[in-house]
Design a protein around this nucleic acid. Sequence first.
DNA 1: ATTATCTATAGATCTATAGATAATGC
DNA 2: ATTATCTATAGATCTATAGATAATGC
Lengths: 199, 199
Amino acid sequence: MRVSRAQAEENRQTVIDVASRLFREHGFDGIGLKDLMEAAGLTQGAFYKQFASKDDLAAQASERAFESGIRRWSAAAEANPKDPLGAVSALFLSMGHREETGDGCPVVALGADAARQGPDVKASFEAGIRKYLEMLGPWLGESDGEASTDKAMAILSTMVGATILSRAVNNKRLSKRFLQAAAKSVKELSADAAQKGQL
Amino acid sequence: MRVSRAQAEENRQTVIDVASRLFREHGFDGIGLKDLMEAAGLTQGAFYKQFASKDDLAAQASERAFESGIRRWSAAAEANPKDPLGAVSALFLSMGHREETGDGCPVVALGADAARQGPDVKASFEAGIRKYLEMLGPWLGESDGEASTDKAMAILSTMVGATILSRAVNNKRLSKRFLQAAAKSVKELSADAAQKGQL
DNA sequence: ATTATCTATAGATCTATAGATAATGC
DNA sequence: ATTATCTATAGATCTATAGATAATGC
């Protein structure tokens, strides 16, 4: 039954990957260790050789979810270097992202859950959120670093909030409108920032 | 053991009130019927004479939470009739609201959870969210109704997202900055709207 | 000899139901 | 007679641990 050290490490990584998806789909309290481990192709008994607790896995899975998010932002930005913010905003505020609960932004799926978790999960969120802000800042063309961070925070808040609102309602038209209104607002905020930066 | 019909109805209302608070504090999956009923001064056995299921209570408790939210918005707006949006924005984006998880905005506390619930909970959310938008619209002074709704959606998104981000991180400074950045952005968005309305 | 995973289980908790009890409402 | 609430419990599930097993790594 024992596997090689390399295989064990690979299994551990698989558990984190699977958890990062299933936690986002069902919430931290919406899925148990048995289902998580089985989705990773293992049994529940193997869990505690790999992780200290469910909370420990939650923190690591959150970190992994942010890594995936950052990678997607980078890819979108690189594919559209003339307007990276427009590309990320279009991706974030798409109906595709609204429906893709398992591989979408961790703040949207688990931000409110994270607020109720221990300091480890919150630390993962804080680190991931800071990375998002660091990416957004340079795209805003403000000369002043502080004003740029303020704009980045407002833009991230708008995108996160709109996607949550979009997911929380039944009506598809309303759902779509939240995303469109947010995209319009993000555009105006960034145009405003670029204008100020040129003064 | 039986109580009067009036008392039974009062008990039912108490359960909904208690649930609207405890669901917001712990999430729909973070608290059980036993604890909810005991917090309302009853035993678990009485639950199913009052509600069809936990999901049924979740939908009614969500509705109740929005009623409370609307009442607070109205009170803030009436206390500051010259700048109702400024008053609501200041209240929403305060550290008090950030910490007041049990009596705060239901979208912030349970929006992501609601996305994973059945159509009844989502219907409660949709109705509550539409009420919020109806309140915000007239404060924006746009001549065009559609543009006004867009702005209202963007402002609500910004406030909801910022509060979630503010709650999800450990660092208090960062927490506060999200709220401040969002307040600044809401102010600019509404000033922008007022300007356009006067053209 | 060590250890990654397995099966099995402890002990708590979850939603939901059943039947008893005691007060209301006709 | 009806019924709101109670106690008790079914049956499932939860996190976490214990001990067995079988392969790795020294």
